[in-house]
Design a protein around this nucleic acid. Structure first.
Lengths: 336, 336
DNA sequence: TTGAAAGCGCTACCAA
DNA sequence: TTGGTAGCGCTTTCAA
């Protein structure tokens, strides 16, 4: 027969103490003699006692979960699995949660069921939630149900936001290409509907204006294929291209493949700068110079804000992005 | 002043019904008139009522969380963020959880605190846990505390296991190189302590024996740098190398960089096969032929086993890995 | 240092 | 279709 899972009552009985004492002993709170603690610990061990988290949370009033909600736009792409940000967001969040007894819950939802997921997560969250890839309207919907929420890199005023300085970052990337002497610089941007893409595009236009360069640009989804195709098109239109800014490393990896396939040497013929400093940047060949997006730090900041509970509508935290130089713009850069 | 968070009691009062009726109405259980449901819903909306998950779990007895526990070996590497498996594991688990009301909790721990984390997760888990990168002794420790547990790709008998057929996969990869005419084939393996690495090494030795090839091999950590350095060493020792099997895509991307830096054309001079079919494979230049590891399916299977509760000591589920051919072995492969 | 007992907020049973 | 109420397993006063 299957035994009922042991409760603290069982432990207390086995140890010959009261429930209260057993609780104190196991949570090493003051008010239990050393001998008692030992007896309780032994009893718990023998019975294989595991406290019920729900009962504990209910009785203590401690809230113990931060939620991460990610909208997965392209199920075919297994976007989450392939998404270079995703793991970094979790790494940052777990860092911030380290040492607390707060857990991280992860929710992934396809776009067509995002509204329902927003509702259920907002209802069930305790400490609060971090939103990734959630559209502004849904983010606001979440905030109305539960104000303890932060959007990561997707502005959705007045939803609290942690964002990288994409416009400045793109400007820096292009200025780098300009500084190393490139004058026929093109850009590959992300989808027009994406806020990050739009900001990076603005940075590009900024340098185009300041340096008096032609505005050579194409677009792609934030995928390798998108980058490959856009690079191929740009090359066909502007064969004398000598610099390329690509608004994501994944696209940049594709662009590098297209450039190589077209016989261009990198960086000698065309210098390339990506964006994100994701795993795609170091797996590319040559490795990509890129703008480092401090995803872990951003996610940690968002999480800490939730833990501190100091989020108000309009709350904002911006992060600078810095240039990382590798072989795709610097022939002298070390490969290892 | 701050109001106390509204409880179901408040909703019931506001709607002029009993707590029981309010509960039935909001959980759309039978036994509440349409009119009552509407009144309750309105009251809940007005008060901004969000049910307390802990109280609900305690009262209903429903257990609602699956845990994912990952040991992060190299904090400097931000291994989780850069770990190509990690996102895919989560993608697979969320797929399996889709449609249930079970949540996914994620725990990441450095190796030096892994034991403590194992204890706390095992104590708090409800449905069960999936273990990634957890050493056999710790996995077994977990199982003794909580038998509802599956190890992913790390054998730790008698802990239930979901694993890929690494030995067969490596053999297939090497057979592919042999079939396309390569005879000076070398291998780059992972760390000797890693079970996957050991199995893949066995596959390599299998083909070496069957095809009568020399056993050319080196090792590296499962990192880009490890692959780069190992390839450079192999090239120095065996300049006539014409095929290379690399036990992970991340290492393979590094190896490709080293080969290119040494002036070798891929695949013309050296054909390369990686392992995993991770994002590293498609970001490499040229893109890598590789053994597809069905991480999502494996994670989903592990999760379903937990949900079904049919795990017994020694439980095992094996997954075949299949060859994916790309430009690093096939000059005719499409790039886009 | 200990025990008794009052809840935590909710669900689910039973009776009306 | 409703309301009353007994718990779920634990923490945390308050007294002893």
């Amino acid at each position: 027969m299957r035994h009922r899972r042991p409760t603290i009552e069982d432990v207390a009985r086995e140890a010959g103490v009261s429930r209260a004492t057993a609780s104190r002993a196991m949570n090493n709170l003051p008010g239990a003699s050393t001998a008692t603690r030992a007896r309780v610990a032994r009893a718990a061990g023998e019975l294989g006692y595991r406290p019920d988290p729900a009962a504990r949370a209910l009785a203590s009033g401690r809230r113990t979960a931060v939620d991460l909600l990610v909208v997965n736009y392209d199920p075919d792409l297994v976007a989450i699995g392939g998404h270079p940000y995703f793991g970094r967001v979790i790494a940052g969040m777990t860092t911030a949660l380290d040492g607390t007894d707060v857990h991280l819950r992860v929710h992934v939802t396809p776009l067509d069921r995002a509204a329902a997921t927003v509702d259920s997560v907002a209802r069930e969250t305790t400490v609060g939630a971090v939103l990734v890839n959630v559209t502004p309207d849904l983010a606001e919907r979440f905030r109305r149900l539960c104000p303890q929420v932060v959007s990561l890199n997707t502005p959705a005023p007045p939803v609290p936001l942690v964002a990288s300085e994409n416009t400045a970052g793109a400007y820096t990337a292009l200025a780098h290409l300009h500084r190393i002497g490139r004058r026929r610089i093109a850009a590959i941007h992300g989808p027009a509907v994406n806020a990050c893409a739009t900001s990076r595009r603005a940075g590009h236009l900024g340098l185009v204006a300041d340096a008096g360069l032609p505005d050579l640009a194409d677009r792609g989804e934030f995928t390798r294929e998108g980058g490959y195709r856009a690079a191929a098109r740009l090359l066909a239109l502007h064969p004398d291209l000598d610099g390329l800014f690509v608004a994501s490393d994944l696209m940049a990896a594709g662009a590098v493949q297209a450039l190589t396939a077209a016989g261009r040497r990198i960086p000698d013929d065309v210098a390339v700068v990506g964006f994100d400093d994701s795993i795609a940047a170091i797996c590319s060949n040559p490795p990509l110079s890129t703008m480092r997006l401090p995803v872990e730090e951003m996610a940690a900041t968002a999480t800490r804000a939730l833990l501190d509970g100091d989020l108000a509508p309009g709350w904002l935290s911006g992060f600078p992005v810095g240039l990382v130089t590798r072989r795709s713009t610097d022939p002298a850069a070390a490969l290892c």
